[in-house]
Simulated scan of single mutants.
Amino acid sequence: MIDFRSDTVTQPTAAMRRAMADAQVGDDVYGDDPSVNRLEAMAAERYGFDSALFTSSGTQANLLALMSHCERGDEYLCGQQAHNYKFEGGGAAVLGSIQPQPLTNQADGSILLADIEAAIKPDDFHFARTRLLSLENTIGGKVLPQSYLAEAQALAFNKRLKIHLDGARIANAAVAQNLDIADITQYFDSVSICLSKGLCAPVGSLLLGDERLINKARRWRKMLGGGMRQAGILAVAGEIALNEQVSRLAVDHENARYLAEQLSSLDEFEVDLGEVQTNMLFARVAEGVAIDKLAESLKASGILISPGKTLRLVTHADIGREDIDLFIDKLKALL
């Protein structure tokens, strides 16, 4: 199948499969898995943190960050479109008794600093205690500028807030700006990095932070059922993801741009090329196009999309130019 639904569908590379078969493992709950320990130590040192924790998913890594920064009755600020607010099952509220305060995301994905400052609650027992600002980069495929991150960090520091980054696609943000991932992580007290999206690992995310935060997160991870035993089989794939797959994301970005250009040539789709910054594009579907039926016909031809009035298409390691050309040709024939 040619799968445009998400970069979560990427298959592990041949090098990952070989490493997984030969991985040195131990019981990670006891701290005995050498492959997990190596991945966590490497990531912490490379991205400028005291410590790191290997988790089963980005949702878990974000939840652990929220529950480790905040206590029951505390509040975190985030965007209306933030993944850890909108797409993670309300975990912070349900499991952490933490109140989210969602704020409007601007067209570029940022949150106005004035809105952040205005949302911070007074020190009054009538209000939840505002403890944390959470940002996301990339968000909707868009990259938050470095200058904005610096200003957000300064605001958080001056208001005595901690600042967390949902960095599920932080590698895409770094590559798009010709930066190192550490150039982005420097602005945050904690960062989650997904290994199983564009970086091709089969499972896992990392949570980075100081020693106190990660120790607390490790305890929460155990409580939430996230203590994986011989997890080194997965960790070695994550190590390869960080070492070998980051620079390759530039190809995904080029393919997304190419796909956007081809799609925008069709009258039935409208794409703002200026918004295609990484591996994700959004196309507005014209009235009268039966997008659900179109998706069914494409599936029968071996092409998967997620239908909607606005069509999100994502490029990744398992999609090449020839796949895009085939997709466009099928679309033209069906339309």
Rank of each mutant, 00 (worst) to 15 (best):
P122R: 04
S134V: 14
R212Q: 14
R284N: 09
R218Y: 11
E136H: 03
F282D: 06
T138S: 08
Y187F: 14
A283W: 02
E136P: 00
A118P: 01
Y187I: 01
Y30F: 15
V9Q: 05
A171S: 12
F4P: 02
G209E: 07
Q153A: 09
C70I: 05
I2Q: 06
S134A: 12
D7L: 00
H164V: 04
E239W: 12
L53P: 06
G90T: 06
L224W: 10
L161F: 08
A174R: 03
S6L: 08
D123Q: 15
M16G: 09
A235Y: 01
L313N: 07
D323F: 03
Q177G: 06
G204H: 01
T278D: 07
A92S: 08
K197Y: 14
I116Q: 07
L113P: 05
D108E: 02
A241L: 05
L135D: 01
Q80F: 11
R160N: 13
E270Y: 08
A156D: 04
D292R: 14
S192P: 02
R169M: 10
R248W: 05
D183F: 02
E296F: 14
R248K: 15
G90K: 07
P100L: 03
R257D: 04
Y76I: 06
I139Q: 04
E45A: 14
S247W: 12
G225E: 08
V29I: 12
D32S: 13
F157G: 13
E254R: 15
N105Q: 01
Y76W: 07
